[in-house]
Write a protein that binds this DNA or RNA. Structure first.
Lengths: 129, 129
DNA sequence: ACATAAATGATAATGATTATCATTTATATC
DNA sequence: GATATAAATGATAATCATTATCATTTATGT
């Protein structure tokens, strides 16, 4: 049969790792972590699978403008805070906004991205790691 | 005197061009346009001045995740629509949102970026250029 | 077990942005 | 106006996250 995706231990591990963290990892972070379990894993495998997961709707890509693509296995509607100080991407616990009625005439959008910038809780208290 | 910025015709032209358009140009678009007036202008001059303007608060950088930095001389609070079809960045005429009361405890933000994704008016009508 | 094509790992290529550096130019001072 | 100084430029190389290529390995249906 054609056009079928196959199982691989690497693919499973990448998704499992993404699902286990709220750190919104970059490809490089995943690569470093997964080398512990798969010493021979290639960085291309990380990128390939991230693209695969995104196409499957299993993860979302978050762009906060720091030069890295961040990935999140939480695909529910939610917003992010990017700390200008420690450069972490942090989930915000706030209800998703409804923009249907407020968008100008002729525009409709299935998806929006809202990112807040500032100093996170910890950095304000000088507790940043 | 030290640490002084000087006038240059190129710098003036870049800012004037940014102020004359609502296209949210990329560095490369500005470069192409400005070569008409300055055939010898270098791409580095564009990037250098964009950074300069951003630091001076004269322009804002818009990141819509298309792989290019877009620039906007309209520094007032406003939101953007990114067309997945024609890949244009379009100003949205809608009032800025107030998030002070809705952000979770401990977070405060001076700045947020809200981008809507979808098909723009023209692309919905198959009028896209 | 075998055949087939998907997935991997290694590595090269891509491309937007940044850094470097010699030259040009703006501007303050004489 | 001439001059000194450092900012700005233009040309080009470097950077670096991401993507493409390709030979090899591996999953899975038969």
């Amino acid at each position: 049969m054609l056009n079928q995706s196959r199982h691989s231990r690497q693919r499973e591990a990448i998704l499992a790792l993404l699902r286990s963290t709220k750190l919104h990892p970059t490809a490089d972070w995943l690569f470093s972590e997964l080398k512990k379990e798969f010493p021979n894993i290639g960085l291309a495998t990380i990128y390939r699978n991230l693209k695969f997961f995104e196409e499957q709707g299993l993860v979302i890509k978050i762009d906060v403008g720091d030069g890295f693509d961040h990935y999140d296995a939480d695909t529910s509607d939610h917003y992010h805070f990017f700390c200008d100080s420690c450069r972490k991407v942090i989930d915000l616990d706030m209800p998703p906004l409804q923009f249907g009625e407020v968008l100008p005439d002729g525009f409709s959008s299935e998806h929006h991205q809202l990112v807040f910038f500032g100093k996170c809780k910890n950095c304000k208290l000088e507790l940043c790691s």
